[in-house]
Amino acid sequence: MPVTPDPTSPASADTPASPPARTAPGQEPLFRERLLPSPGTWIVVVALGSIIGLVLVPLNTTLALVVGIICVVIAIVLAVLYSPVLEVSDGRFTLGRARIEVALLGDPEVLREEEWKNTIGQDFEPLAHHCVRGWVSSGIRVEILDEADPTTAWVASSRRPDDLALAVRTAQQSA
Rank of each mutant, 00 (worst) to 15 (best):
A21Y: 07
E114W: 02
P161V: 01
L86P: 01
E143A: 11
D107G: 04
E115M: 09
A167D: 10
P39F: 04
L105F: 07
P37Q: 12
E28Q: 14
L65R: 02
V67T: 13
E33I: 01
P108K: 06
A75F: 08
R169E: 13
I100P: 00
A98R: 01
A148H: 05
Q27I: 00
E113M: 02
L111P: 05
E33W: 00
T170Y: 02
T62D: 03
I76R: 03
S12K: 10
P20R: 10
A156F: 05
V44P: 02
V67A: 14
M1P: 02
A148D: 09
R34T: 13
V142G: 05
V168N: 01
Y82N: 15
D146T: 10
P19G: 09
A153C: 14
A128P: 01
L59R: 07
S38D: 11
V102M: 04
N118Q: 15
V46L: 13
P20L: 06
L127N: 14
S38P: 11
N60W: 04
V155G: 05
R97E: 03
V45F: 14
G53N: 02
L81Y: 13
T62Q: 01
A17C: 02
S9G: 07
G134E: 15
T170G: 06
W154K: 08
Y82F: 14
I51E: 00
N60R: 06
R22E: 14
V66E: 04
I120N: 08
P20K: 14
L164Q: 06
S12M: 08
D6L: 00
R159H: 05
T15E: 15
F124G: 06
S138L: 05
L127S: 14
I140N: 11
S174T: 10
E115I: 00
I43G: 15
C131L: 12
L164M: 14
I70Q: 08
P84L: 04
G139I: 02
I74R: 07
D163N: 08
A13M: 14
S158V: 10
D123N: 14
D163M: 14
T119G: 00
R97Q: 03
T15Y: 08
T151Q: 12
S137N: 13
E125P: 00
T15S: 15
A153Q: 07
P37V: 05
G91C: 09
P7S: 10
A21E: 10
V88L: 03
L30Q: 06
D163S: 13
G96S: 12
L30C: 02
T152A: 13
R92L: 13
W116T: 05
H129W: 15
P16Y: 10
A103K: 08
Q172C: 00
I51K: 04
S12N: 09
V57M: 08
D146F: 03
V88R: 00
R133V: 15
T152M: 11
P16L: 11
L164K: 07
Q173Y: 08
L36F: 02
Q173K: 07
W154G: 05
P25E: 15
E143R: 12
E143H: 01
D107S: 08
P20C: 05
F31K: 00
L48S: 11
G96I: 07
G68L: 11
C131A: 05
A64S: 13
P16H: 08
L105D: 07
H129Y: 15
P58Y: 09
S174F: 11
H130L: 11
R34K: 07
D14V: 12
G96M: 07
